[in-house]
Write a protein that binds this DNA or RNA. Sequence first.
DNA 1: ACCAACTGAGTGTATATGCACATATTGCGA
DNA 2: TCGCAATATGTGCATATACACTCAGTTGGT
Lengths: 140, 140
Amino acid sequence: MAGRLGEEIRTQCMAQALRRAARVVSRDYDAALSESGLTIGQFSTLAALDREQALRLGQLADGLGMDRTTLNRNLEPLAKKGFVKSLPVPDDARARTLTLTEKGRAALAEAAPAWRKAQARLAKKIPGWPLIGPALDVLR
Amino acid sequence: MAGRLGEEIRTQCMAQALRRAARVVSRDYDAALSESGLTIGQFSTLAALDREQALRLGQLADGLGMDRTTLNRNLEPLAKKGFVKSLPVPDDARARTLTLTEKGRAALAEAAPAWRKAQARLAKKIPGWPLIGPALDVLR
DNA sequence: ACCAACTGAGTGTATATGCACATATTGCGA
DNA sequence: TCGCAATATGTGCATATACACTCAGTTGGT
């Protein structure tokens, strides 16, 4: 009688599966990026700012599927390194726009080769990825 | 010329996609479980211990795809609540075995209905899940 | 028996995550 | 204009994550 519930959770819990997968692949990417001094989370944040400049905190957080306050704190190490700048908005004294600095763009470009290596390695390890990526897009 | 690299990363980075998905669904499960006082991560840990008793820290961490030291710290709130106990191993004075207490098993069972609700809600939101779950099993 | 390599666990530090709450500002209706 | 709801951001707290390092105990070779 031991563990019927636990077994059900292991085989069916989507959160467990996704969190586990995120941990495993994050460690891999982080190792690949270690030379660059960026984590995969920081790399993703810089990439998001590279796509669109002058985003507000809330907008960027939405884009990353992340709580606003989490992003706020994730920006601290990036700001400390001078990769991201937070500028006031003329129209609205509450808001601030986030911009990728030249230094930030350079760091992103410099880390890109290591990222591509991790991509290639992972793509081999997860042959079913072409099915996964699109299927997860519904969460956007 | 702005953002070619950022665009490539957004469309292709597996870590970004998985981390994002994990964040989004975790918030959902956490909200569903809030009454129970468990996070989805804690719920998963209890479930793993429900499947197999007397696991060592390292074994359980491997099973969860988690760093050993992370699990060590994740166990603290569970131990504080009396859901998990760490017992010495007779054969090996270095090791300790983790056991789910009766209280822990009860907490897991009590949280299960809320978890099932989150499961049902998410299954509707991610119709492609039957493809995703098996495809991620390669990371085990 | 001894020592070296190995193994299992714990700690220091840094980052990541989000809820509850607080603050500041804007916009709008009475 | 006054006041209030809505909006944008920041902070306190708790948990989550993992690398580098440390320590204790085990194991195998001599």
